[in-house]
Design a protein around this nucleic acid. Structure first.
Lengths: 174, 174
DNA sequence: CGCCTTGTTCACGCATCATTGAACAATGAG
DNA sequence: CTCATTGTTCAATGATGCGTGAACAAGGCG
């Protein structure tokens, strides 16, 4: 399944493991739920690798066991926006916040140095610009995180239509 | 300089090397252009590492030598959107295009199987959904790539104001 | 009840890649 | 011209992390 590899490569570039993308895509596109051994043999990887990947995907809320018994096969949760929002909320926010705090500290230092006539190594104006950039980034992030998803039956299809319309509006905006 | 480390961490998560972020941030925030040895000693890394990083940053168009002589110090190019657009155009587009092509192929295969009454392993409906998703992604990418930047003197500040306004409009849209 | 299939855990190997230090090249200063 | 400083190249190192296989656990089915 070339789609799984392409998806894996894509996911990998976004800071996750390729195996996550491959497993999720395979399960998502199969008509029937899959057991771990089926996943492993289909993808040509070891069962141990699949075991870990599946556990993490279930933890992320991207995979779900069908039934309660031990060897219950897995189906994909198509509605992955909550997971993406969660990643944005934690990972990206922390990164931007770290940069923002560091910049604020550096600006304070530079201003204190200015006030006491010490030599100022750094360009305060530029630091302010980068600070403003992090704030714009955080605003954008807040919007993305806050995007409400349609509830009920065919969530993913509805969300997709939603997103498509939004992109159209965005094009007119730019 | 904690800002450099924060920036490096951020850049690293976006698929680049942390050293690129650290070097660029240091040069961008310093009031005066910096030589490679100054960069190396300030960041506490070897000159060889800085040499490679600087060469790549110059290649990306994110750093520029001030003057023509061999040991000319470097200043930062603040207007980094062209570089980002370039990365989006090559890396992200290729990834999405790869997924799209693979999905189209799989859909064709599945339809052929349906027509000839062979067993169909994959869910055509879902494949179409993911195909639509890649297309929405490509539309969004086209918009981002096509975003024109202000020309002339204080480009970065103008761009930032531009971007900030855009994010505000986007919030009202969502 | 016992076997066989399935899932989990863990230590190891293997590859990748950032970083270093040393050797080398290039150039400006004295 | 000579030397010291700066930048470049390259092999070696070290760390990080994916993937594997074997051993182990846990049920289901005969």
């Amino acid at each position: 399944m070339q789609v799984c590899d392409a998806s894996g490569r894509f996911i990998e570039y976004w800071g996750f493991k390729a195996i996550h993308g491959r497993v999720w895509t395979l399960v998502a596109l199969r008509a029937a739920p899959l057991s771990q051994t089926e996943i492993a043999t289909t993808l040509g990887v070891s069962r141990s690798l699949v075991s870990g990947a599946v556990a993490e995907l279930v933890d992320y809320g991207l995979l779900r066991a069908v039934g309660t018994h031990r060897n219950a096969p897995y189906e994909a949760v198509m509605d992955f926006w909550p997971t993406i929002a969660d990643v944005l909320r934690t990972r990206e926010w922390m990164l931007l916040e770290g940069a923002r705090v560091a910049l604020e500290g550096a600006i304070d230092e530079a201003e204190y140095a200015q006030a006491t006539d010490e030599p100022v190594l750094y360009d305060v104006e530029r630091m302010r610009l980068l600070l403003a950039l992090t704030e714009v980034g955080q605003s954008l992030l807040r919007i993305l995180i806050g995007m409400r998803m349609p509830r009920g039956g065919e969530r993913f299809a509805t969300w997709l239509k939603n997103a498509s319309g939004l992109v159209g509006k965005l094009r007119r905006l730019v």
